[in-house]
Amino acid sequence: MPSQPPANPGQVRIGARGSKLSLAQAGHMQRRIAAALGADPADPAAVEAVAPLTVITTTGDRVQDRRLLEIGGKGLFTKEIEEALIEGRIDCAIHSMKDVPAELPPGLCIAAIPEREDPRDAFLSRGPLTLEDLSQGAKLGTASLRRQAQSLYRRPDLDVQMLRGNVDTRLAKLAAGEADAILLAYAGLRRLGLGDLPKSLIDPKEAPPAPGQGALAIETREADRDLPWVAGLRCETTTLCVTAERGALVALEGSCKTPIGAHAWLEGGSIQLIVEALSPGGSARFRHAGDTEISQLSDPLRSARDLGFSLGQAIKDEAGDTIVL
């Protein structure tokens, strides 16, 4: 379907999910995009005039009683928004990077990755301070196969319960006693002003978070990749780290049926990366770590992607079907 140009050529129409967290993230980027277009980011009317926000409900939002792997995978958080982008009803989409599948629809691209929030997982409970402090057989709530597998690797006695819903819903279920503890992305809690709630944070080198966790993805049509407002949103360090992590995701054919964690950081002139994949029940864990020099390279993004892909491929060769649900 041909693109529909915005009524005002100076506009950038934004699409995002309607959850409280998505709106907080989208609102932050909406103000940055408006500022890049010359509007006052402190003036809500001016922001909405140049960067109007459209809320799009996705299948992942509508279906809350089953794991994503049962209804089609994490792409269900992006599908309807990407359709609006392809059809020209919006000009960019704002996603949590960890919700973006390894492969994008033809004609679309991740045009910008802004500076990342804290990528760690957060441990929340009604008392205990860490996963190790939970009582024998305690109920741990999560909808993430990765968090399930990593937790059972450390505590095989735990009773892991499927717990989906937005942040408020999960916190309410914890308070109601449906779980003794839950795991959430610390970045999301911080963006919602709830950064004081976790009892502790998970070491990302011991239990790597989802590839891209804590980062946002600004998705556009390929033709819009290098527009001036896009370039101003990019964070080079975050982009390199996320590119390395997603390289592993591609190699492992990452989906909601494969528990994959990846954590990259810059150290001196090198990208350091840890990748792990586990059996869904947590009985087996496969880890590889590596680094690559970036300071003298002509294409650091390719080097980052190749590092991630090579570590992911090493795990795939070693683990085979052990890591697939």
Rank of each mutant, 00 (worst) to 15 (best):
A215H: 02
A231K: 14
L273M: 10
R246L: 14
L252V: 09
L252F: 05
T220H: 06
L233F: 05
L233S: 03
L301V: 03
A215G: 04
A210E: 14
R225K: 15
G214I: 05
G269N: 13
T239P: 00
I294Y: 11
K257P: 00
A207F: 13
L252W: 04
T292G: 02
R221G: 02
R234I: 13
H288W: 05
L233C: 04
I294N: 09
R221I: 09
A289P: 00
H263S: 09
L249E: 14
R302V: 02
T237A: 14
A244T: 01
G254M: 08
E293W: 06
V242H: 01
L273Q: 06
G232I: 00
E267D: 15
E276G: 04
D299I: 04
L278N: 02
H288E: 15
S298D: 15
G261P: 08
G281H: 10
A251E: 10
E222I: 12
T220W: 04
E253M: 08
A207M: 15
A217N: 06
L216F: 12
I271D: 01
G290M: 07
V250I: 14
A284C: 12
R221T: 11
T238Q: 01
A304K: 01
L227M: 13
G247K: 03
R246Y: 13
G254Y: 04
L252R: 06
A277M: 08
G281T: 10
L240P: 01
A264R: 03
